[in-house]
Design a protein around this nucleic acid. Structure first.
Length: 286
DNA sequence: AGTGGCTCCTGGCGGC
DNA sequence: TGCCGCCAGGAGCCAC
């Protein structure tokens, strides 16, 4: 499922291919892909050059010289560039002036496309979206403020795009493992040190995901059809019953907010113990 | 207000 | 061997 690292991978692959190219056709084969009609989308996009590609959370932003296209891949969305023949019937296709194509394929049909007029509309579009975790604004102080008072489990907190933008099920589980925090722990119970560890874990996990070109456990491929490799180094996600890579304890699975959640019960204790208490317990002296 | 639960959608897989 | 039913999950919506 495309999360921040997968969308960033798509952005990086697509940017050099699309920048400077003019949109000469836009075909919508599945009307449910957008609240706007094909005619409305074409009115905004046709004849416009691609200026640059940006990302915000899990959204891909295609800036035209005038107007903005926004794409969300949701569960199974794939943006495929110049891959004839098209593997599956695309939900929409954009043709460029040099004869190249960008196809949006999406088996589960959750993905969405929006056409916006300008930056002001984009700002409004993202009004409810939380902090960008790989931006300088994502400080420990900021995270602490977001965690403060929340009774929701950490896992649910991380999946809430209004707090932090771009974290999905895979990277939430992996970041919590890296931070040594239990997914069911109330978000507001995490202290300053825990918040520091969580911030660092989130940044490291997401950056590692980008370095590995994403996770291909489901259907994720980049615009050239290539898989990512983060799935090869997952610590907990979809490793239920397998030994923890750090301590050997079998990975457990629970459901939090309807989402499969994977963790190591030993590396991610429900209550964080102090160094002294942890040492005493390990020696059997408590 | 904040939080949890339901819904969409379809390929894949478990079970009989 | 074949088929049926259930599951996964991002985010919007609704209810408490």
């Amino acid at each position: 499922m495309p999360e921040l690292p997968e969308v960033e991978t798509v952005r990086r692959r697509l940017e050099p291919a699309l920048t400077g190219r003019r949109i000469v056709a836009l075909t919508v084969a599945d009307a449910t892909v957008s609240a706007q009609t094909g005619a409305e989308l074409r009115h905004l996009a046709l004849g416009r050059d691609v200026a640059r590609l940006r990302r915000r959370g899990k959204y891909l932003i295609v800036d035209l010289e005038e107007g903005i296209l926004v794409v969300h891949l949701r569960m199974t969305g794939q943006l495929l560039f110049e891959r004839p023949p098209t593997p599956r019937r695309p939900r929409f296709t954009i043709e460029f002036d040099d004869g190249s194509f960008l196809h949006f394929c999406d088996v589960r049909r959750f993905g969405r496309l929006w056409a916006l007029r300008d930056e002001a509309e984009l700002e409004h579009f993202f009004a409810e979206l939380g902090v960008e975790p790989l931006s300088p604004g994502f400080s420990t102080a900021r995270l602490r403020a977001l965690l403060d008072g929340r009774r929701a489990p950490l896992k649910a907190f991380l999946l809430d795009q209004r707090r932090i933008a771009g974290v999905g099920n895979i990277y939430a589980d992996e970041a919590l493992f890296r931070a040594g925090l239990h997914p069911l722990r109330p978000a507001g119970s995490v202290g300053p040190r825990g918040a520091g560890r969580l911030r660092e874990a989130l940044v490291e996990t997401l950056e590692l995901g980008i370095a590995q070109a994403g996770t291909s456990v489901d259907s994720f491929v980049d615009p050239e059809g290539a898989s990512g490799s983060f799935q090869e180094i997952l610590n907990v996600y979809q490793r239920t019953g397998e030994p923890c890579r750090r301590c050997g304890t079998p990975i457990q699975r629970v459901v939090v907010g309807g989402r499969g959640t994977h963790f190591c019960p030993r590396c991610q204790p429900k209550r964080r113990m102090g160094r002294h208490a942890a040492g005493a317990k390990a020696r059997g002296t408590t």
